[in-house]
Amino acid sequence: MTAANGWTADEMMTVAAARALPDRAVCFVGIGLPSSAANLARRMHAPDAVLIYESGCIGAKPGTLPSSIGDGVLSDTADAVIGVPEIFAYWLQGGRIDVGFLGAAQIDRFANINTTVIGGYQAPKVRLPGAGGAPEIAANCGEVVITLRHGRRSLVEEIDFITSLGHGDGGDHRERLRLRGRGPGTVITDLGVLQPDPETKELTLTSVHPGVEAADVAAETGWDLRVAPDLDVTPPPSDEELSVLRELQG
């Protein structure tokens, strides 16, 4: 899908995710779109954001996007390279990460994430890669930003497996489990931005990307989607955001 002025829906999603990363934030970055977004942010408004990759690279500053979580360009440019048990124990569980960027195969209306199986666990229809670092990223980071492509098979009424907890059953579920982080605060898709209602924690459409109507988003969502009364339109990617992103992607 390409808009009239030349950006794609995936580029809009990446740019919107980049804007969600504040400067000086310490960010736990997954590979793929989250990594593109975090590196774009570092070149735009967040030069002092600290990117942490789960391979043990703290403060990585890759010049081109890595294709795996453990490319040499990450360790070469990092402030520190440490072992994997330390990353998860001292840094993530130690409460030192502000923002976790996660992808997802499926989410539900409370931003619970499935990256494990479609279908039953014992005899799955589709076996997905599994958890990786996500369950503890979702639990322990100050805030979580989720990116995924919109569709009725990805934003679903009920997920088959909770790989990583979002807002559970909604309301104060996270507080009851005594999780340290606030959980998913923003879900960014190729159609718009969803944010949890402050009370119920149900995801609500708060912004649509340019050219997208709220009804389009609702039609692509597997539950009865709530729409914010003051619905925004996401500013389109600027020329600078686009050129920097494309340069990063080589």
């Binding site: 998860f88 124990a89 369950p135 503890e136 322990n140 909770i162 790989t163 340290r180």
Partner: peptide
């Protein structure tokens, strides 16, 4: 999860019977 399996490795290297983490809360795992 990575945090859990990393902890299993660390316990193995330390000769401890198990490792402990703040993890898996609310998940189907």
């Amino acid at each position: 999860s990575h945090a859990g399996l990393a902890e299993r490795w660390r316990a193995g290297a330390a000769g401890l019977p198990f490792g402990v983490l703040r993890g898996y809360s609310g998940t189907s795992l």
